[in-house]
Amino acid sequence: MKISRPPPKDLPETIVPLIDVVFFLLVFFMLVGRMDATSPFEVLPPVAQTGADMPGGGATLSVAADGALALDGAPLERASALEVLRTRLTQDAALFIRVNAHRDAELRRVLPLLAELEAMGARDVALVVTPGEGQ
C-alpha cells in the first residue's frame, strides 16, 4: 500500500524583504530629495560654474521671468512679500534668504529686491544658480 505524502504546505510568502526594500527606498528619497517649496511659476536659475553648495532652511524668494514674486512657494505681491520677510528678519536677524530668479528676469526687477533686503538688515542673501558650463 502506498501512502501518499501530503502535499507540502505552501510557505507563506515572507514580506520581510519587501519591507526592507521599501524602507531603503524611503530612506533614499528622504536623503536625496530637498523639501523646498516649489514656486508657482517656472524658474530656471542662471548657470554658473563657481557656485557654492546651498544650505537648507531659510526663506526662498522666487522671481519669475516677468518679475512675478513668490515667497516660499506662495505667490505674493512685492510689498507683502517684503513685509513678510521684514517680520521674519525681526524674529531672526540671521535669516538666510535665497533669491531664486529666473535667468531671463530683468535686473531691474531683481536688484532692487536685493537692495531692499539688505536695507532691511538681511545679512545672508544668496542668488540661486544652476551648476554647469556657461551657456
Binding site: F29, R98, V99, R123, D124, V125, A126, V129
Partner: peptide
C-alpha cells in the same frame, strides 16, 4: 514632494 534639482548659490549679501 521632494525636488531633485541640483542647485548652487552665489552669495549676494554676506555677513
Amino acid at each position: 514632494t521632494s525636488t531633485y534639482l541640483d542647485l548652487n548659490m552665489i552669495p549676494a549679501v554676506s555677513p
